[in-house]
Design a protein around this nucleic acid. Structure first.
Lengths: 349, 349
DNA sequence: TTGTATGCGTTATCAG
DNA sequence: CTGATAACGCATACAA
């Protein structure tokens, strides 16, 4: 029928035959309350289905009991967002915090934060897609607003969690090396992205540490076609037998590029990616990749944030390790098993 | 330095030399205010960067100025969520509404809604993953709480937006038919999912309407391997030349299954999917699919919701059309161009 | 046209 | 141990 008015603390108090203050005390365990009244209050709460209204709590407390997260802007469709958000929401919920979502409409990365803050805001922010000299970090830090970053920040006072991309790529390099590959190549992103630079670093470090000659590196934007078109350049001189890529999207492009020039990815040339997007396991051959533990990251971020909110100290920066997922693109048997016979019939070309 | 206290309506009033009520009137355009004072108030607001606090507004208004959305539970990683949420958030923002995210922890689909509602809640809900006889729909409707569903509901009073899956599949069937295919098969989901049933309906309708014999149909869960394993059954008797699938995930599995038995998807057997997940364009051959206009859906849902909130009538149900994206899996030239030479060298097998 | 006073639901302070 | 009361920031009758 009609929307039943939500029960207030006064309703509970009347039903239990006590004052509002006593109800509040019972709920928060503040003062010592006689067991008898305590029980009556709990019964009334149960019976009425009472729960303190967020808005009413907010007002005197000066807090919102909400965390906020700004959706990444014009980036590519992000399947990891799903599990990330899930974990953020449910970890926040464990601390009785809710998650407010907002988005940026213009190019200005800071404006939406400022806007939200002016309107009552949130108790803390989860930031992702951190860039060098991130304006948002500066803005929030200056105002003493609690936040935690998914992505490293070069400031010991800032709380952040990041995936160890360098270590991930090192694992990939080691993996293909153990498969017998000596001539590797790296397809990276353009200079200037913390994540991209970090992953490239892992490649350089590990190939050096293995005593390999300097290996060829090309840089492309994070795009299937860009990866595809990079292959001819790559196979120009050094003829690598394994291509380590900065991302799955690029790696899948590279695989297509290899086919373009008549090479079988996985069989002729090993390929690795990063991120373990769904497509990595949905293609033949499957793409060896590095899975980011987005659930861990989400949980840790919120835990860091909560620690700040309750004024509890804790380590400021955490590096989590990605998991190497080995598939046929580096073992060669996938392409074979998926295509037991050569394609002989072709149409339309 | 320290967090500057947010300016209140009182600060604005003092600076402008008027009362709080006047400020409120100016902001809401309620009463007629003399142009001079109006300007002074606006100046003060501008200067102070004032914006009414959400919590303080909420209390007397009995509204939260927030919409809420419950993240889908244990479903597969959903890259469409990204653009969907983006659109929901930004459309809501156009109506000065924010989006609260929550999640369900247990099997009970209703409990998180009840919980949120008890704690102050939200002004309206966006629901997705609608099932037959959806408990949440019943719960919210019973309590007169505004909501809008992504997914059809068999109740003329309920506001919903859905993608026309039947029509999408009809387009796919027509497309492969025009490519010369007469023996089709459909790989669907198990009975009981509104979306799956709808898509199957489109297949049945269109093949009938084209005057084709009843075509074979198999049902599998929405899983790559399930699709892959379905192929042998499919090729048992009728030997279809085109396989229409209920989803991209299944379709990609089917393509792998075809390779398993030595058939080249795209060249030997046409395959279509649904959803246009990123993987559809990241494989060779590319997968012909149907793209759901998630941005449209998100915007329409919020618009429906807002219409309810301001008591404005509007059509309750909207069916949006998916777009057929034709790729090489139904034209045959993709596999060819991507693999100009047969794979002759194979390792490890 | 503008100002004053009250209430929204909660928590915290202070008496009893 | 328990109850009254002020305050949080805002909107809205109502008064001037």
């Amino acid at each position: 029928m009609s929307t039943h008015r939500r029960p207030t603390i006064r309703d509970v108090a009347e039903l239990a035959g006590v004052s509002m203050a006593t109800v509040s005390n019972v709920v928060h365990g503040h003062a010592h309350v006689r067991e008898g009244t305590r029980q009556r209050v709990f019964d009334a709460i149960e019976k009425l289905g009472y729960r303190a209204s967020r808005a009413a709590k907010s007002l005197p407390a000066g807090r919102t009991f909400m965390l906020a997260y700004c959706l990444p802007g014009d980036t590519a469709p992000n399947s990891a967002l799903d599990v990330f958000l899930h974990q953020v929401v449910s970890t926040a919920s464990d601390a009785d915090l809710e998650l407010l979502l907002f988005a940026q409409k213009r190019a200005d990365r800071v404006q939406p934060y400022a806007e939200l803050l002016r309107g009552g805001g949130a108790d803390g922010f989860v930031l992702s897609e951190i860039e060098y000299e991130d304006k948002r970090v500066a803005y929030l830090k200056e105002r003493n607003i609690p936040f935690a970053c998914f992505g490293r920040v070069d400031d010991p006072a800032v709380h952040w969690v990041d995936v160890d991309g360098a270590s991930g790529i090192r694992a990939a390099v080691e993996h293909v090396y153990l498969q017998g590959h000596q001539r590797l190549a790296f397809v990276g992103w353009p200079n200037g992205s913390p994540t991209g630079d970090d992953r490239l670093l892992g490649f350089t470090e590990e190939t050096e540490s293995l005593g390999l000659e300097p290996q060829s590196v090309v840089r492309v934007i994070n795009d299937f076609d860009a990866g595809r078109k990079a292959v001819p350049n790559l196979m120009d001189g050094s003829d690598p037998t394994a291509i380590v890529c900065v991302s799955d999207t690029v790696a899948l492009g590279v695989m297509a590029g290899l086919r373009d020039i008549g090479a079988a990815p996985g069989a002729d040339v090993a390929v690795t990616g990063f991120d373990d997007i769904p497509a990595a396991s949905l293609t033949a051959p499957g793409l060896t990749s590095l899975r980011q533990p987005m659930d861990q990251v989400g949980a840790l971020l919120v835990q860091r944030l909560v620690a700040q909110l309750i004024g509890q100290s804790a380590p400021n920066s955490i590096l989590v390790q990605p998991d190497l997922i080995v598939r046929e693109s580096t073992t060669g048997n996938g392409a074979a098993s998926a295509e037991p016979e050569p394609h002989t019939r072709e149409r339309n070309l």
